[in-house]
Design a protein around this nucleic acid. Structure first.
Lengths: 238, 238
DNA sequence: CAGTATCCGATGCGATACTG
DNA sequence: CAGTATCGCATCGGATACTG
């Protein structure tokens, strides 16, 4: 058992006893997003310590939410969600939707872990929506105190996207200058690319067509139905 | 802010930052169930300290999830959920449903707080399904180490149910002998009344008709659609 | 009833170093 | 890469007593 039992007869509380310990839902979310390897999950979560991740994975295994698969040949280990964990998706969806509409996470956005956000660009940049040639996009963050404030995304037809912290040496097609609050707010659909540009928090330069189509090739985390977006817009405006 | 921010760009994590601190969801659930007064919420939760409840209520107020209403005339205070908290219901429902089907909470059930479970009988006993006269039901728990192992539920037409820890002095119509695991499992629909009787964990004596109809007058927490119940039965059997 | 004030102990969690 | 081993602090939360 993870958390001290609440002692009340209520299914939600039983769920809490399993899911409440720090990082538990984040680990499951990372796996939902496709992470299967220990190090992969770590990178997704950014600031979790290996000790704690190891502990949580064991707990999740004990709870029957995660399965550890070791390849005898290669020694590689994969973590997979069990059906029980997959069945959590509707609840996580509902929670995400609620948070999307009801939390002004300004304070949280300010704490965005930039490396994990950039790592996320592996899937956040949709190469299908980019020209069918090599593309290099440089991201520079104006925030102070970052270990790295410049990243390069390298998109090549037929290869997985690459994210570099050192200049890969190719010509840059698009320069993106922004800050962590702005970019994370865009990813969360809490604002729009055009508004961020208008208000001076996002600068795009280089290939004009890439700049114009950023709306399409940058994948946003949540897709709301029209009413929800409207509701969201209203809240942000108000 | 409540919990140290996760730093990842993900709405679920933002929800966690607000909802993860211990007792937060339980407080909202108690209010969902109709509790509005400080002491009422306390009783519902059983083992929360007043200090912590006070702290959480302030935090929830700061987050815009709870509204504190003080009656100038009487000085009485009510806590009400805001729309934002009410909008959490779908997520809580999904979570409850998941827990119902996917957690064998044996360990949790053993920690059931008996006073709060009995307090819950205020609403768990549906007087509509009882004969239209005064009914007294005595509950005795065989567990060791309880402050009180005997409770009396007093149901009178036109009055709210009463739960007593001392014999109210009326004739008892139905005697219920059980233990906390069994009764809480019944309330959670994790087992059935007839099975608990068969397996010797629940004894009913006194008015035979009250005993036979317990299925009807004891309100179960979650109402599942048929397939879900089936799924649950399978899991318990397996 | 509706809380506040204090205190203290457990432990959760982060940081760091190390290993096969 | 995939973890384990230690360490130590901070803080979370429980217990208790007290108040208007």
């Amino acid at each position: 058992m993870n958390v001290k039992p609440y002692g009340i007869v209520c299914p939600v509380s039983h769920a809490c006893e399993v899911l409440e310990p720090r990082w538990t839902l984040q680990i499951l979310s990372a796996m939902w997003s496709g992470a299967t390897r220990f190090t992969e999950i770590r990178r997704w979560l950014g600031s979790i310590s290996p000790t704690l991740l190891s502990k949580r994975l064991k707990e999740l295994e004990a709870q029957g939410l995660v399965e550890r698969i070791e390849d005898r040949a290669t020694g590689k280990v994969d973590y997979l969600r069990t059906q029980r964990a997959i069945d959590l998706e509707p609840a996580l969806d509902a929670l995400a939707k609620w948070a999307q509409c009801n939390i002004e996470a300004q304070a949280a956005l300010e704490n965005t872990d930039v490396p994990s956000m950039m790592w996320d660009m592996h899937r956040s940049i949709n190469s299908e929506e980019l020209p069918n040639r090599q593309i290099v996009i440089q991201f520079r963050f104006s925030d102070h105190g970052l270990d790295h404030n410049t990243y390069w995304a390298l998109i090549r037809p037929g290869s997985p996207n690459e994210i570099c912290v050192t200049n890969p040496g190719f010509d840059v097609d698009l320069f993106v200058e922004t800050n962590r609050v702005s970019l994370s707010a865009i990813i969360l659909s809490r604002t729009t690319i055009s508004r961020e540009i208008e208000e001076g928090r996002l600068f795009l330069s280089g290939d004009a067509r890439l700049a114009r189509t950023m709306d399409r090739w940058l994948y946003r985390r949540t897709k709301e139905d029209p009413e929800d977006v409207l509701q969201l817009e209203t809240q942000i405006a108000g």
